[in-house]
C-alpha cells in the first residue's frame, strides 16, 4: 500500500476522529528516494480503532514507542508505528498523536492488541502521570521505588522534578 493510500485509509476508517493529518516527505541518498512519515492527530477515544485500522494493512503493526510531552493544558502522547516492514524500501512511519486534558489524564490501553506496548505504557504512567484504562501492571519501570509520589519528570508544570534537581558540579565540602 502506498503512503497516500495509507493516509486515505486512515481518514476513511477513523472519519471525524481525525483532527489533523499531514504527510512529511524526506528525500534521502544520491537517488533522492522518498521516505514517508504520516502524522495524524486523532481523538483519544479512537486510539484502539487506529491500531486496528493499521492492523488491516499489515497484521502486527510495529509499535516503535509511545512518546509524550507536556503541552500546557494538555499532555500529548504520540504513538509511533511502522507498517509495511519486511519489504524493500516500502515501509512507512505512521504517527498518531492524542491530546489528553490535564484534569482527565486517561486513555485506553493497547497492550491487549500489541503486547509489546507494556513497558512504554508503564513508562508514561511514571513520567507524565497518564492513566491507562485496562492496564494491569502499573508498576514503575525506570524510577526508583522511593521516588516521591506526584512528581512526574517530564511535566513542565508544578508537578515537574524541579525540587529534586541536584547539581553535580556544585557539591562542596569535599575532603
Amino acid at each position: 500500500m502506498k503512503a497516500t493510500d495509507v493516509l486515505e485509509h486512515i481518514k476513511d476508517r477513523l472519519g471525524d476522529a481525525v483532527h489533523e493529518a499531514y504527510m512529511q516527505v524526506r528525500k534521502v541518498g544520491v537517488s533522492k528516494r522518498e521516505r514517508y512519515h504520516i502524522w495524524v492527530k486523532i481523538d483519544r477515544k479512537k486510539i484502539r480503532d487506529a491500531v486496528n485500522c493499521l492492523a488491516e494493512i499489515q497484521p502486527y503493526p510495529h509499535l516503535c514507542v509511545i512518546s509524550g510531552y507536556d503541552d500546557g493544558d494538555n499532555v500529548v502522547l504520540v504513538y509511533h508505528f511502522v507498517i509495511n516492514y519486511e519489504t524493500k524500501k516500502e515501509a512507512i512511519s505512521v504517527n498518531f498523536s492524542v491530546h489528553l486534558p490535564k484534569n482527565d489524564l486517561c486513555i485506553d490501553t493497547i497492550t491487549d492488541l500489541i503486547p509489546g506496548a507494556l513497558i512504554t505504557e508503564r513508562e508514561k504512567i511514571e513520567m507524565l502521570g497518564v492513566d491507562f484504562i485496562g492496564l494491569e501492571d502499573k508498576r514503575r519501570v525506570f524510577l526508583p521505588d522511593d521516588f516521591p509520589e506526584g512528581v512526574y519528570p517530564w511535566r513542565r508544570d508544578e508537578k515537574g522534578p524541579e525540587k529534586m534537581l541536584h547539581k553535580l558540579y556544585e557539591v562542596g565540602d569535599r575532603e
Binding site: 510495529h62 516492514y85 515501509a91 500489541i114
Partner: peptide, 25 residues
C-alpha cells in the same frame, strides 16, 4: 512480531525487519 522486537533478536526468528532495508535513510 507480537512483542515488537527489533534488530538481530527478531531477524534470528526469521522476521526480515531491518530499518536499513525497509525504511532506508
Amino acid at each position: 512480531l507480537k512483542l515488537c522486537l527489533v534488530g538481530p533478536t527478531t531477524r534470528a526468528r526469521g522476521v526480515k525487519k531491518d530499518v536499513r532495508v525497509d525504511l532506508p535513510t
